[in-house]
Design a protein around this nucleic acid. Structure first.
Lengths: 203, 203
DNA sequence: AGTATAATGAACAATTCGTTTATTTATTGG
DNA sequence: CCAATAAATAAACGAATTGTTCATTATACT
């Protein structure tokens, strides 16, 4: 098979652009950055940018896509080796991956990345949640179970939001620890910790 | 008390600007909009904009502030009249308020408003959560209760995210209904609906 | 009615964008 | 190592947008 093998200059240029964008977002936020800022930082001509990407967003999306694929790989892999090493389920895997790539995660989740990028992530997670919980909920049809979309929406929202909160606050608690907190809250609920579900809910 | 009473022209102009911005965001998203788009829509001179606001963001923040204050008022009021009318706790109140002001909520939460605006909302909600849950958690010190910040972070994330999801999907389920779904998931947890907390959690 | 204040339109320099062009430089494959 | 190919470059461009100033006109307040 003839994979065209990418010109060394191309991969080098793209790598530099990606790194420059990420560094700049962490310094000043997404919105402020101009194309020239990026190429200056990457030590490239401004024209060169347009040979590779349509705009800032396209560049960011590339980093995102690559990282998401990596995470999916990790989870698949972890699912293969049933009880290996320090395994702990997909949620631990997510928090660990976020800790390792915290720069990119921060950028996407709260660095003011273009809203389309964030929505893209939301949809990705939502899909995964529907796929994962769908069958389990279906198995209990009739037991006053919430609709799948609502359930998946809640899960995706809670996870994404909690991840954002954790990164925003500078990652207090280690990844496994925070994953554990999340799991306890998501699966067991808050009631156990604070008593009444809500003033009137005990009707 | 001499409140200077605002010139009729000023309040009219500002109102037009606010309305124009919201309409435009709903049509094209936040980023695309130029100052001139806004003043055109509001039928005002471009220069006039700068007599009132520094930039787009300032204008949006004004709408946000006003609406947030309104919501706080509703909740306070609802808290006063213990079991009146169709009361249902602050969470119902939030979803109802969101339904009534869904345009603004959509804009802020997923219309691609400036990230600073969204972060502003996150912090607001986080503060409220700490204040609300802090004492309740403190009362159970020592019972393996999660740290307050983590707990509040989870709550704020879940609520904000779930609200976003609900609005994004075009508000399936009525406000009271969706508030109920949220409360069940948040307080009672997901375990009841899907069984195992997580493959390995039953260690 | 008379004064104060707000809105206006024109004009401005400064940025940024996205593209085109001709030229130089680096990489690949033989 | 050489030649063919592809990539990077700098300069220059028009078009948009921003934020400001200024003189003039319109509107609201008392």
């Amino acid at each position: 098979m003839n994979e065209p093998r990418i010109d060394r200059r191309v991969s080098r240029t793209r790598r530099h652009l990606r790194q420059a964008l990420m560094a700049l977002i962490l310094e000043n936020g997404y919105d402020e950055i101009t194309i020239e800022d990026i190429t200056d930082r990457a030590d490239l001509g401004r024209t060169t940018f347009y040979l590779h990407y349509r705009d800032k967003e396209a560049l960011l999306l590339e980093s995102l896509e690559a990282t998401a694929e990596e995470l999916r790989g990790q989870i698949r892999l972890e699912r293969m080796q049933p009880e290996s090493s320090s395994a702990g389920g997909p949620i631990q895997e997510v928090f660990r991956h976020a800790a390792l790539n915290s720069d990119l995660y921060k950028i996407i989740l709260s660095g003011g990345a273009a809203s389309r990028v964030l929505n893209y992530v939301r949809e990705m997670l939502l899909e995964a949640a529907v796929e994962f919980f769908g069958p389990r909920l279906a198995a209990r049809r009739g037991e006053n179970v919430p609709p799948v979309d609502s359930f998946a929406g809640y899960f995706a929202s809670a996870l994404l939001g909690y991840l954002t909160w954790w990164l925003d606050k500078g990652m207090p608690y280690g990844p496994d620890e925070v994953a554990d907190l999340f799991i306890r809250l998501f699966f067991n609920g808050a009631q156990q910790y604070i008593g009444e579900p809500s003033r009137d809910k005990a009707k």
